[in-house]
């Protein structure tokens, strides 16, 4: 392992996620994707807002929603956003153990959130809100369910990264991968801010 084959030991750059061209491309491309996701959720929000008064004989928002459950879910997701911020700060410090630990914390909070959401949908179903009960039911389940699917995807994505790179140490290859996963996670929280405001709070207060 002498001469030209010697593996260069890279020193830690200030922003390891953007140190390579590939990393910068991932970063930019991912934001392009997030812009598209914004429009996807915009169309679901618009549909929900247009149809939410169409409850027919089924239960309506004020019969179903419990603010305490939604508040707990909101706090869980907000905290998971903070733990992923800590993960990125540890990554920039070169503290790989810290990065992994905070990402695992993020995954755990994401799973807790999903658990609450499954419980919530289960309860609504038993209160008589099937997917095809009313226009409100369909648009509600589609909007909140699409968000829940994003959470499930984010949890699996981060878990796969954590298992695959459990022993590799921080490299110029995996830094952008963790970074984009964190951006995705924050975006999920951004969408949830609109969901708890527009769906739950307006459903009870408006």
């Amino acid at each position: 392992m002498a001469d030209h084959q010697a593996v260069e030991q890279h020193t830690l750059p200030p922003n390891p996620e953007k140190a390579t061209l590939e990393g910068r491309n991932k970063y930019l491309g991912f934001w392009f994707f997030l812009g598209g996701e914004t429009v996807l959720f915009g169309s679901l929000f618009g549909t929900y807002l247009g149809l939410r008064d169409g409850v027919v004989d089924g239960p309506g928002p004020s019969d179903l929603f419990h603010l305490d459950l939604v508040f707990i879910m909101t706090m869980i997701l907000l905290t998971s956003s903070l733990t992923s911020v800590f993960a990125v700060i540890n990554m920039k410090r070169g503290n790989y153990k810290g990065l992994l630990m905070w990402m695992w914390a993020t995954v755990l909070l994401g799973v807790a959130f999903l658990g609450f959401e499954i419980y919530e949908f289960y309860e609504y179903y038993h209160l008589g809100l099937g997917f095809t009960t009313s226009a409100f039911a369909s648009s509600f389940y589609t909007l909140v369910g699409t968000h829940g699917a994003h959470v499930a995807f984010g949890v699996s994505w981060i878990t796969v990264l954590l298992i695959r790179y459990r022993k590799s140490g921080l490299t110029l290859t995996n830094a952008p991968k963790f970074y984009t996963a964190v951006l995705y996670w924050h975006f999920i929280d951004v969408v949830w801010v609109f969901i708890f405001t527009v769906v739950y709070l307006l459903g009870i207060g408006g």
Partner: peptide, 23 residues
Amino acid sequence: MSSHVDPSAPLQGKPSKSTERKL
């Protein structure tokens, strides 16, 4: 910087003082 760059090599070293302060 060498011409042979291996992006899968673990990053070594500590962040600089200014990075540390920024973080």
